[in-house]
Nucleic acid binder design. Structure first.
Lengths: 221, 221
DNA sequence: CTAGAATACGAATAAAACATCGCATTCGCT
DNA sequence: AGCGAATGCGATGTTTTATTCGTATTCTAG
């Protein structure tokens, strides 16, 4: 019987006083530094505690294990990135395909600017990926893309829309990971964003059910 | 002074008798099983030795550390995959762009078929990525793609060719990783391969210096 | 002011993993 | 057969890491 203890990355105790709130923040900040400095496989609670200037004991008051700290970092980053993408993809001042291109450029640039952190976080992902809380993130991303596709491909079969959402999402995230792990220059990243953006736009235009609007829905570079 | 011992993944001793050659093979086979079963972060020399039915001591006769075992697995897999892709991309019986599409489909299917192994190997990559031997693989891939581009974009500026090679290579490998880490069905993978293939073909046709041949260089699906 | 809750501490415990070394066994060759 | 080299062994020492627990300190409500 292989018993694998259930992965739990939820908070152990909620900070109630000001000092503990501050402590949790300090831990997360320090954790980010340690992760970048030492890499995912040298990320230990002891190092984080030391970098944060607190004791291990204090750390364990608010995080049940080191995975929870990493998951906390990932959650922060995810929410921030998703918020930004959501804002762009729902900005009705631009035609949909232009929004997508802006989203891609913005996302790729953020992967580039925070390359060290993002790639280290990605290396650490296997440690918390099994946790149920982790699924929610992926679902949130899928949903955002699905909503966007509903606007872009209004008359497409839901099956096809789902594929388009899946495909575009997968392409963005996978190329994004490549960018952060390879540490590219901003210039290269811009060329990548352009190329991927154009390719995805022409892919989407060729989809059944694409709504051609009169005023520049193609957003050429 | 933080001294980080230099990463070495080369072989410690070369097997000279039949039994030791067999032992090395058994270790690598067992290592692959352990990697899939237990994941990269539970991959230990002890477990590998046990699974291979040999002692740890014997294992350390031929591998200086566990990273070397993982690197051995990665090297095997890389050579096999590269050989296959090379064969396809240089098969002059097909027009270049069709070769590319076949290569993509073949590669994606292999990522799908061996998803568990490939994704576990990818998780383990940070452990040996720092080793100098590891660079050679990337370089080999770059070169293959560069050669292909020389044929496909003969009159392009070398700068543009390099970008095209980089872009196509990055897209293939990053989407390939996504496929293996997500454990998709063959059907989905085929749709991905088709979409990526078409997109890359149209990207390449739009490049300056694309050689239009009379006999079907566009390889439409 | 004071009691009790919250917070912080860090030495100590336990578990896991890496890698070695001295010794036993087997092989290949003459 | 018999010798030296190659191979195989696994208990052992060392190091690293995760996590706990008893105690000391600080806060906050009444």
């Amino acid at each position: 019987m292989a018993r694998s203890k259930k992965p739990v990355v939820g908070a152990r105790k909620r900070p109630r006083q000001a000092r503990s709130t501050q402590l949790v923040a300090a831990i997360l900040q320090a954790a980010a530094r340690v992760l970048v400095r030492d890499g995912a496989h040298r990320f230990t609670t002891a190092r984080v505690a030391e970098a944060a200037g607190v004791s291990v004991g204090s750390l364990y008051q608010y995080f049940p294990n080191k995975e929870a700290i990493l998951f906390g970092l990932q959650t922060e980053e995810w929410h921030q990135t998703m918020g930004e993408l959501r804002r762009i993809l729902r900005d009705s001042r631009m035609p949909p395909l232009q929004r997508l291109q802006v989203a891609i450029r913005t996302f790729f640039q953020s992967e580039c600017d925070e390359a060290a952190f993002r790639s280290a976080l990605e290396e650490a992902a296997p440690l918390y990926r099994e946790a149920p809380e982790s699924r929610a993130h992926a679902e949130e991303g899928r949903e955002l893309m699905e909503t966007f596709m509903k606007e872009l491909l209004p008359s497409a079969a839901s099956r096809d829309r789902a594929f388009a959402a899946d495909f575009v999402g997968t392409l963005m995230s996978s190329v994004g990971k490549a960018i952060s792990s390879q540490g590219r220059s901003r210039l290269e990243v811009d060329k990548f964003a352009d190329a991927v953006g154009k390719m995805l736009c022409s892919f989407l235009k060729s989809c059944q059910g694409y709504a051609r609007t009169s005023k520049g829905g193609d957003a050429r570079g």
